[in-house]
Design a protein around this nucleic acid. Structure first.
Lengths: 199, 199
DNA sequence: CCTTCTATATATAACCA
DNA sequence: TTGGTTATATATAGAAG
């Protein structure tokens, strides 16, 4: 039984949120289907749960709807739009991806040198991705610190420090946009926090 | 006043269909927003009206959610040869490549979990690539052994050992197609060969 | 994770402005 | 097109299974 208007904010109780998600998700997908059938519209819905599970509906084909969206949202970039050059582009990108993921047949690699290049590139990529992860985590920590500051302030009654805290937060965010120090910042933050260790 | 259950088929009356579209479309977008807020989910909705007008909602960023969708549904692998699906494929592959190489803006990643996924994938890929490099080197060694055998044979006159060497080479290649043992095989092969050390 | 129950909240078809 | 009004259909929170 619904006891009152529900507040438009995250449901904090895990079980309730999960139950609500399950029901509302089904409701949303049903509504999407009804809209597409009744009104003859092209509809696509994508839902990712908190745990990363995917739920979707598409009245036509998801890639086609997405592509239509892209074409609508932004006039697609440069490069040949004929099937020939696009096919070439696709083949190149797919081969490039397979090589990066080590999914090629051995004969696809021209030499051990090429494999060495790819390995080196992967290591750099891994380093990039880890740095970005550290960045994201440090941003989250700064946010939490800022929130903590606000909470503490509520008890101390000192108001001048609020703006100072926010200012620092913004500066930190800006500086993290450059890659140079992010990894260091990231790792330093997690000394003594093994469960947050950056893998 | 709703006089009865609505039939789940296209509303034939133009005015009614248009009215229904307008109301249901708003309802759908609202529901999508509620789901994302209440249940902390990543939600994206795309609606094209019959006349081609676009209506959308996305809790995060549409391109980000679309990209996440593609990473999840690997269905892109196959697909049509029309420009629409090819363009989609290109978009997906390019974004996928940027993420693997850590070249995306930080905001392109939805969470540290996603970055963790990518990092794990990169580590597996690196392992694959190293294994393949080891394979290639081992094949080259087998070839050299075979050639050495042939050269020796020219002097000794014994011919049967050549085919034996080739047979073993093929078996090794087959077993390496599965990931489980390739790394181990690769490293074992190069014990005592420091200049060929696998990076 | 799913279903069912039931009281209530929401959505919406038809109508009107 | 857009925005109310109202009677009804649907959706769903909370509890239980």
């Amino acid at each position: 039984m619904v006891r009152g208007k529900i507040q438009m904010k995250r449901i904090e109780n895990d079980a309730s949120r999960q139950m609500s998600f399950s029901k509302r998700r089904n409701g949303l997908l049903k509504k999407a289907h009804e809209l597409s059938v009744l009104c003859d519209a092209e509809v696509a819905v994508i839902v990712f749960s908190q745990r990363g599970r995917l739920y979707e509906f598409s009245s036509h084909e998801m890639p086609k709807t997405m592509d239509r969206y892209y074409r609508h949202a932004k006039q697609v970039q440069k490069g040949g739009s004929d099937t020939a050059s696009m096919r070439t582009k696709i083949e190149f990108l797919e081969q490039s991806k397979r090589k990066l993921l080590g999914q090629c047949s051995l004969s696809s690699y021209s030499s051990t040198d090429e494999l060495q290049d790819i390995a080196s590139q992967l290591e750099r990529s891994l380093s990039n991705v880890r740095a970005r992860k550290a960045q994201l985590l440090s941003e989250q920590i700064h946010e939490l610190n800022a929130k903590e500051g606000l909470l503490l302030e509520e008890h101390s009654g000192a108001k001048s420090c609020v703006q100072a805290t926010h200012k620092q937060e913004n500066e930190t965010y800006s500086s993290l946009s450059s890659n140079s120090t992010s990894e260091q910042v990231g790792t330093e933050l997690f000394i003594g926090l093994p469960e947050m260790q950056i893998v």
